[in-house]
Amino acid sequence: MSALADRLRHLRAQSGLSVPAAQTAPPKPTLSADVLRLIQGRSRLQRAEARASSMDRFVPGDEIASGLFLTEAVVDWLPPPPVIDTAFARWSEPVDSGRLMHFDTETTGLAGGTGTRAFMIGAAHWEADGRFRMRQLTITTMAAETAMLQAFAGWLRGDTVLVSYNGKCYDAPLLATRYRLARLPNPLTGLGHLDLLHPVRRRWKSVWENCRLATAERQILGVVRDDDLPGSEAPAAWLTYLRGGPATNLRRVAHHNAQDLRSLAGVLLHVSRLGRP
C-alpha cells in the first residue's frame, strides 16, 4: 500500500505537479524527502494518539448526542430595546429584539465547495428578561454533524431574523451545503438576515484599517481580546483534536466564538442606533 503511495508520488513529481523537495534536500540514498516526510507525519500522528490518554482532551459541555457537545451560558450583556431599528440595513420595518438569532460558525477552512464543513456553531439571542443566552454546538466526530445541524435547526423559528458578520456570503451558504449533503431541509431558507459586515463597511471602510469583526468591536465596544486564537488557526485546532491531540486550542476556538457572538450583538445595537447611513 505504501508502495502505491510511493509510486504515485514519484509519478506526480515527474508530471510537474509538485516541485519535488528531493531536488533541494541533501541526497538520501534510500528514501525521497517526500516519503520521509510522510513517515514522520505518520509517526507524529501515532505519537499523538499514544499520548492522548494522558493529555488534556476535555471538551466542555453536555454530550447531547454521540460526539455532539452543547455549552450554554446566560449572561447580562447590553440589554436591547424592545424593537431594533433596521433602517441601517435599509429594511422598512423594525424587528422585535426577541426574534433575533446571532450566529457564527467555525469551519475546517476557507477553500469552499463541498469539502469544507462547520465543526462549531455558536448562536445567541435575548431572552424575554433581556438577558443574553449563548449556546454553542461542537462536534468531536464527523458523524455527529447531522445531529448538530438538527439541533441548530431546532433553535430557529419561522420568524427568526439572523444576525451575522459576513454570514450571507460565508456561513449561510456553507450551512446550506451541509444541510443538503445531510439530506436535511435548510432551516435558514427564507429567514430574514441582518449581515452586519455590509453596514459596517459602508460606514467605516475608509476610516478603519480594516472591517474585521475584531476591529469593529475594538472601535465600537472598546473590547480588546486577550489570548485570542486567530480565526485562521481554528481548522488546525479542531483537526488536532480529531486526530487524537489535546483539546486546548479547541477550547480557545469556543472562547473566540463566544466573544464573536457578544460582539455581534454589540455591533448590531450600535449600528441600529446610528440609523440610516
Partner: peptide, 16 residues
Amino acid sequence: LHREGDRWEWIADSYP
C-alpha cells in the same frame, strides 16, 4: 482524508 468508521471524509483546507 480522515477515516471515521467506514467513512472517508475530506478534511483538508484545499480545493483539489
